[in-house]
């Protein structure tokens, strides 16, 4: 496939106009749409989806913030306004399955939209990657990460929030890497510091930043790559690695980017 073919994206509006009902809606999210770092993850995932022949579409300009930061900040009005607007769009397109690369979007769409009339089968992109690998729709043969030391940072809203610990790890293991666990991992995973709307405010006074503490722990494993599964963790861990001036040696990569790179996508 050419790069252009791999990056091909259709909107729901166009698909429906063509009389198609895509199997998956790829919920890109605000970070995935606007944040320069997260956009790379978005494109990596699009490449994988196209490579694996997944029938998907995005909402494009019809997508809006899912409302997570508003809800965590305590503004339930704004959350529900965003939610109902999005549910209106999703239901109008008859969306059944949603995949997203953001655990915050994932949690909100999966758990908090049903009470407002939005019931979908929502999966995190690491779950989809796991099933694509398990069913052989994508395979990995000795990619660039083979033998590398990888540590995986659990996003709170994927791990503790929704008990998904194994899917991202199994995907990483497929890369034939040496997966090393931080002392605080899985249910005891330490937050990156971005959740609960912290991403959008100054940290309260303290003696260090949460992301610096977490990056220090991750760097303590001497990894080649710190793997993440959330755009906000990605930002926080990247900044944390920069704090220790290790950005030359240690990369922070989303699991989707690792799979795409291993396949030279």
């Amino acid at each position: 496939m050419s790069n252009a073919e791999l990056l091909k994206v259709t909107t729901m509006a166009n698909a429906i106009a063509e009389g198609r009902q895509p199997e998956y809606l790829f919920w890109v999210g605000c970070a995935g749409s606007f944040d320069d770092r997260a956009k790379k993850v978005t494109k990596a995932l699009v490449k994988i989806l196209n490579f694996a022949g997944i029938d998907f579409a995005v909402l494009g300009t019809e997508e809006s913030c899912n409302g997570d930061p508003a809800k965590r900040a305590g503004n339930e009005f704004l959350f529900q306004m965003m939610a109902m607007q999005n549910i209106g769009t999703l239901n109008a397109y008859g969306v059944k399955k949603i995949v997203t690369a953001c655990p915050h979007c994932f949690n909100t769409l999966k758990n908090e939209y049903p009470a407002l009339g939005g019931e979908y089968e929502v999966i995190h992109h690491t779950q989809l990657l796991q099933s694509l690998l398990d069913t052989g729709k994508i395979t990995i043969e000795g990619g660039e990460f083979k033998g590398k030391r990888i540590t995986y940072h659990d996003p709170c809203y994927l791990g503790r929030g929704n008990d998904i610990y194994e899917a991202p790890r199994e995907v990483i293991q497929k890369l034939e890497v040496e997966l090393v666990e931080m002392k605080r991992s899985r249910a005891k995973g330490f937050c990156c510091g971005a959740g609960g709307a912290q991403m959008f405010k100054e940290a309260e006074p303290g003696n260090r930043e949460v992301n610096v503490e977490r990056a220090e722990e991750a760097l303590g494993q001497n990894p080649n790559v710190i793997a993440v599964g959330c755009p906000f963790c990605n930002t926080m861990m990247t900044d944390g690695v920069k704090h220790f001036e290790k950005e030359g040696e240690v990369k922070v990569l989303d699991v989707a980017e690792m799979i795409a790179q291993a396949n030279d996508l």
């Binding site: 890109v28 606007f34 956009k39 997508e63």
Partner: peptide, 22 residues
């Protein structure tokens, strides 16, 4: 939160640019 309310994202980007990444 004002940004979310006005332009559907926590940052000041126009909703019309949401698919620009593609």
């Amino acid at each position: 939160l004002t940004n979310i309310e006005n332009n559907g994202a926590p940052w000041q980007f126009s909703p019309a640019d949401r698919l620009n990444w593609a």
